[in-house]
């Protein structure tokens, strides 16, 4: 898969290079030309990311480097570590990062608790965003990570497969659902909060009576289901199941829709390479970049990409979404989950 991605990335890079030769600066907006020139002059962009070296992410960075000749330094951290590093660096006056890719709620939190981010400025490809995704003054959507239900196809007969979130409350699944812990902040609580809002309090109360078993290792949990420890796992991030091909598991997109985490770009305050950062953000919204994400079972944020995804990825790229989780609701949702799952 990695080799394939590398090839795709190289193709994107070469296409970009040829396009920039075929359509010189005069074909583009004058303002953006100056951004491109300034970005190339800056020669480098430092991005803080939660992708932790995901192959599709690396492929996009590679294609960006090939297209613009700008070096990308990506510092991969987990969400909380990323937030604390940004906060500490900004507070200490060490402006090492240029841009970050984090969840919408984290950006809201950063705005609420400090002065760490600045306006992104004009990004031409923002015009290609598909509904309901919108850029704001300080954030630009990058990609979407939806979640569904994972089942073991050897244990769950086709006629018994859950089709909706409500099906999880069927008595046959009592004690047989493995779940990401819903009490602390994370995917489990995101699912809990969105389902509470969309399906009502009764849904979560009944789910709690099903006695789901909590775990804290999403990557290994899907494999535990594949090995037959449990027939069902929730919430399964689609993308995390894309590399389990060959195992007896299947991701179900519930009919009500898929709760999701929105990942967005933000520009860090006093970024040393702001123009290169803008170029990178714009590059992420190129159809070819988004296609890499769509083929990794994520939901692209620009028009015309989802239907170009590989056959196995199309359903996920076109999944109906449910959400998002809101920052102001978080504490109450975590408290409620704690109460239900004492």
């Amino acid at each position: 898969m990695l080799t394939k991605l590398k090839r795709t990335a190289l193709a994107i890079g070469l296409t970009g290079l040829l396009a920039s030769l075929a359509f010189p600066a005069s074909a583009q907006d004058g303002g953006w030309d100056s951004v491109v020139a300034a970005g190339k002059k800056e020669g480098k962009v430092v991005v803080y990311s939660m992708a932790l070296g995901a192959p599709y992410y690396l492929a996009v960075l590679k294609s960006f480097e090939a297209k613009y000749g700008i070096k990308v330094e990506s510092l991969d951290l987990r969400a909380s570590e990323l937030a604390e590093r940004v906060r500490t660096e900004q507070a200490a006056g060490r402006f090492l990062g240029d841009t970050e890719i984090i969840t919408t709620t984290m950006i809201e939190e950063q705005r609420k608790t400090g002065d760490y981010i600045q306006a992104v400025g004009t990004i031409p490809n923002v015009k290609n965003l598909r509904a309901p995704f919108k850029a704001t003054e300080v954030s630009v959507p990058a990609y979407v990570q939806p979640m569904g239900i994972l089942i073991n196809t050897r244990i769950v007969k086709p006629e018994d497969e859950p089709k909706s979130w409500e099906d999880l409350n069927d008595p046959r699944w009592k004690g047989k659902i493995l779940s990401d812990d819903m009490r602390p902040l994370g995917s489990g609580n995101t699912m809990f909060a969105i389902l509470q809002k969309k399906l009502g309090a009764a849904f979560n109360e009944k789910l709690a009576e099903q006695k789901p078993v909590f775990s804290r290792d999403m990557r290994n949990d899907a494999r535990r289901v594949a090995r037959g420890e449990y027939p069902i796992y929730v919430p399964q991030i689609f993308a995390f199941a894309s590399d389990l091909k060959g195992l007896p598991v299947k991701v179900v997109i519930p009919k009500e829709g898929a709760p999701y985490a929105m990942m967005e770009f933000a520009m860090l305050k006093n970024a040393a390479h702001p123009n290169a950062a803008r170029l990178l953000i714009n590059h992420f919204l190129e159809a070819e970049s988004q296609l890499l994400y769509a083929n990794g079972w994520m939901l692209p944020v620009v028009e015309g990409v989802a239907d170009r995804a590989n056959d196995d990825a199309k359903a996920f790229a076109n999944a109906k979404l449910m959400g998002p989780a809101l920052l102001e609701e978080r504490p109450a949702m975590m408290e409620l989950a704690k109460k239900l799952y004492q």
Binding site: L52, L75, R78, R219, L244
Partner: peptide, 17 residues
Amino acid sequence: VGSEVLSVVLLRMWENG
């Protein structure tokens, strides 16, 4: 960037399944 150590790379790999 450039001073990645093994435990960080292992974490990345683990988080990538």
